[in-house]
Design a protein around this nucleic acid. Structure first.
Lengths: 219, 219
DNA sequence: AGGTGACGCGTACGACGTACGCCGGACGCG
DNA sequence: CGCGTCCGGCGTACGTCGTACGCGTCACCT
């Protein structure tokens, strides 16, 4: 019923234009760049060159999309086969840390009360299996997972905190109520005597010590 | 310009009806009961018996309201004066844990990239000052804060995770890829040999061991 | 008595998530 | 080669949310 088809180029470029993978990838890029709050279906569609409602052909809802994003952001855990106990835990922890601070929004997301997806289960499985493989009973593996996973998540959350500046404290007149914190913020960066070992690593070292203690023969 | 004022009862009940404190308290109740996502200005106003726009006389924006909520939810840290090092850390950690799981939404909030408010600073100050008071240098106090705060936050986040059930795994056909996890979920609750020590406490015990190690004279 | 400020609220606007249904092309089958 | 069927993109529309703006009303202070 159009006036004359011969003058109109093919309206649709081709069959494929949108699929779940490219949607999730683009959404990930938006969240990484501008934060999860900046992700909206209209914006995502704009970035993909399509209409907002087209997305719903491939994803049932925005919440589901966010679940998928978390799942692909986490990806697969590192392979710990053949590692000794402590080294394996260290590799697992630093790998998780790397993922979490490459995608800062994951930290807040996992802290919500969503249910765990395949990727999260995969990471847990990797560490549990590693500990069990070294001959520990299951309940010890759970303890280790709790310690290591807990530390990494907490440290990632802490790393995301923005503390007030020393000036903020000064101006609010609260500086005298928070003397130690003021001293901490006022003095330049705080370093251990060893110099530059980052806070995450020293905490991890202590946590791994605790892991070994938990796995040592009962005293 | 009304028809006849004598027949109309006083239109406004009185002066006070809304103030910042009652708004924040009610908002807290909503978040505790139905989660932070259920908090909307219209609903909050309904719960307070007022109109949505009235709230903005007392709170500049919803984000600011949420900041205030977090600040009052955290409250004041425990007093650690006179405590020995380890005990003080333990009191601090369990107090924070109690706050976090009385208000589960705080965990996800603090993990976002908001800047820390007075209450958060107060908690940090309390632990830092405690450690410094026992004669440790400032950088050690920072390490301890990192370890303990990190563990508590991470454990709180973990506690909020909803794992899939064994049936979920079975039905998805993934059970064979996650043997240890399946065994864990399949078997009843996992207990250490001691019986019922909750996971949080055993992890905290290990973390406190690490704290003491960090504070011991250098080896 | 009249001015002044604080406060509650009604209206209105733009953005968002998404239910619903149209339409046009692709593809299989007779 | 024609036709029915299905799929994927999209336009429209609705309900909700956050909130800018301005009005009317009261309490209180000159």
């Amino acid at each position: 019923m159009s006036v004359d088809v011969r003058w109109s180029p093919p309206t649709t470029p081709a069959r494929p234009a949108l699929d779940r993978a490219s949607i999730v990838t683009t959404a990930l890029a938006i969240a990484d760049a501008d934060g999860l709050a900046a992700l909206s279906m209209p914006r995502l569609a704009r970035e993909l060159g399509s209409a907002p409602m087209s997305l719903y052909r491939h994803v049932p809802s925005k919440d589901a999309l966010v679940d998928l994003m978390l799942d692909t952001a986490l990806g697969a855990p590192p392979d710990l086969a053949g590692c000794p106990l402590r080294l394996g835990c260290e590799i697992w922890a630093t790998a998780l840390r790397d993922v979490l601070d490459e995608h800062p929004w994951t930290v807040g997301l996992m802290a919500g009360d969503r249910s765990a997806g395949p990727a999260e289960c995969g990471w847990s499985e990797a560490l549990l299996a590693h500990v069990v493989t070294t001959g520990q009973p299951l309940h010890t593996a759970v303890e280790v997972l709790h310690l290591v996973h807990g530390y990494v998540r907490g440290a990632a959350a802490l790393a995301g905190d923005r503390l007030p500046t020393a000036d903020d404290l000064e101006r609010s007149g609260r500086a005298t109520e928070l003397p130690v914190l003021a001293r901490l913020l006022g003095g330049a960066v705080v370093r251990g005597p060893g110099g530059a070992e980052p806070l995450f690593d020293s905490g991890l070292r202590r946590t791994l010590d605790a892991v070994e203690a938990a796995c040592a023969p009962r005293s």
